[in-house]
Amino acid sequence: MTSASIADSVKEKKTTALSSDLIGTLAIAVLGGAAYVVFPDDLGLLTRILAAAFFVLSLCLVTGICGIATLGHAVMYGAGAYAAGYFCVQGLTDPIALIVVGAMAGAVMGAVSGAIILRTSGLPQLVLSIALVQLMHAAANKASSITGGSDGLIGISPAPVLGLFAFDFYGRTAYLFGLVLLVCVFAVLQRLVRSPFGLLCRGIMQDRVRVAAMGVSVYPVLIRMYTISGAVAGIGGALIAIATGVVGLDSVSFAWSAEALVMLVLGGASSLYGALIGTVVFMTFEHFVSAASPFHWLAIVGALLIAVVLFLPKGLQSFPARFLVKLRGGRRDHSS
């Protein structure tokens, strides 16, 4: 193969990657738009799913791509939510500005908490991340003059988006606003994951020592990714603060961090699509089951999780692939 043809094939690969990214992003926009039309009465739930999607995507960036173990990811989500809420109460009511504030707060929290937990890896890292989220939870409770403590931060009433679209009680504006944000952020993240930086992160996950031996300084790379992840989580937090109008301590809780991890594992940790699928499936399932059986639904959700972990260890996103393999005659490709 000549060097020209190699260059060609690389180029071709790039363009197919680009176009598949584009299709993916478009698909999200179309599905999101369709959900708006088909389920006009469920926009509250759908908006919560959007906010959770940001959060799980953000977790996917560090856990699925970099292999960082964390059960304290809500510190960034909470930072975004409280920052957006606080600024809104103080008078900065433009929703787009609030999203930027949330992203920045999340990024700062990501950089700071990343600097701490990335010093270690594996089990100590997990424990540190839990300690961090518990500390932030306690701090948010203590600083009740700013956060409202356990009563919640109230009085968040954002101005109309672009001065045109006011937030209504059906949640239409909030949902569409969130959907547009998600599509934009998803497109950026896809590029990020495919970029040399993203590949480097995957490399670190697979063999940290080897990457270090290649002359890469691992720690700063991970902190950069953690900061980006913080910004994404912060956007999710800011979105839910804007949509709900109240920020509670649950947004910086261990439980929320763990739930995100469950959604990520459910969908498949190593891909952004997996993160989205996991979020949508988990939250929709939870919603239906809890409506059908408000007193016993937790047990049913538990059973689903056990089933997925047992039968689809790579998450729901691996289901179509496995299904296809079965159709083709039972050859299994474990490396997929």
Partner: peptide
């Protein structure tokens, strides 16, 4: 119609109330 909010979770509570009202 009963709806479970779990613990303190304003986002969930609001979404559930919204659904009860709208849907």
């Amino acid at each position: 119609i009963y709806r479970d909010t779990g613990g303190p979770n304003p986002a969930k509570a609001k979404a559930l109330a919204q659904e009860l009202i709208v849907k």
